[in-house]
Amino acid sequence: MAGKIETRLKELGIELPAATAPVANFVPCVQTGNLLYVSGQVTAFNGEIRHVGKVGGTISLEEAVQAARLCALNVLSQARAFLGDLDRVTRVVQVQGFVNAEPDYRDHPKVVNGASDVFVEVFGDAGKHARFAVGVGSLPLGVSVEVAAVLEVK
């Protein structure tokens, strides 16, 4: 029987990408106590890198929001792979958003809203979180967005 969160994902028409192995010397998730730290996730969907470029340059705000959504889906995918069940998530504590943007770009928070919206859609009030959204000069593989998260779990 599917859990509450898996049912919610189906209701929303959300398909989580497959959790991928890290490409460097780190692990996707680390749990300490009741906190799960999910490493930064980029804009990959089942091995295909998407949304490559600079926001405010080759990537529009609308595409960057979709890129942030995809990063959030990858965060959920990694959490599910680690925990075995997303129903174990009791709260999204913090979201960390990195936007590969042109130097004069100023709408980083609007971009990272794409990720924040996913967590609230999926977890409701438990998805509301603290966060930061910063612009960076580059990101791995040239992707436009990277998102990491801290989740409270049972």
Rank of each mutant, 00 (worst) to 15 (best):
E62Y: 09
A79R: 10
F123R: 11
V65M: 15
A2F: 11
V136G: 06
F82T: 15
A64E: 00
G33D: 07
L141R: 10
R69P: 04
S39R: 01
R106I: 05
G124F: 11
R88L: 12
A149I: 08
K110G: 04
S77A: 15
V89D: 02
G13M: 01
L141Q: 08
D125G: 07
A68N: 06
G137N: 12
A64G: 03
R8N: 08
V134I: 11
R91C: 10
R91Q: 15
R131G: 15
T58Q: 12
L70C: 06
H108Q: 07
A149G: 09
N34C: 07
A19T: 01
V52I: 15
E6P: 03
V111D: 01
I49G: 01
T20G: 15
F132T: 10
R69L: 08
T32M: 06
D107N: 11
V136M: 08
G97D: 01
V111R: 00
G137S: 14
I5C: 03
D117S: 09
L36A: 03
S39D: 09
P140S: 11
G53V: 01
D104K: 10
L76M: 15
A79S: 13
V52Q: 12
Q41E: 05
Q66W: 13
S144Q: 09
V143K: 05
A126H: 14
A130R: 12
S60C: 01
G13H: 06
Y105N: 04
F26G: 05
K54N: 04
A21Y: 06
R80T: 02
E6Y: 02
V38G: 00
V52L: 06
V27P: 02
S39A: 14
S77H: 08
V89L: 08
T20F: 00
V143T: 10
A115D: 09
L36H: 04
Q94V: 12
V122S: 06
F132K: 05
V112T: 10
L12R: 13
L83C: 15
A72H: 06
A19M: 02
D87P: 09
I14G: 00
Q78S: 15
V65A: 15
F98R: 05
F98W: 08
P140G: 09
K10G: 01
G137P: 00
A79F: 08
A126Y: 11
A115W: 04
V111N: 03
V118L: 05
V147A: 03
A79W: 11
P17G: 07
G84W: 10
N113M: 02
V52H: 01
G3T: 11
N113E: 09
L83D: 15
A133C: 11
H129P: 12
G127I: 03
E48T: 10
E146L: 13
A101L: 13
G84I: 11
A2C: 08
Y105W: 14
G127E: 01
V75F: 04
N25H: 03
T20V: 10
T90C: 13
S138F: 10
F123M: 14
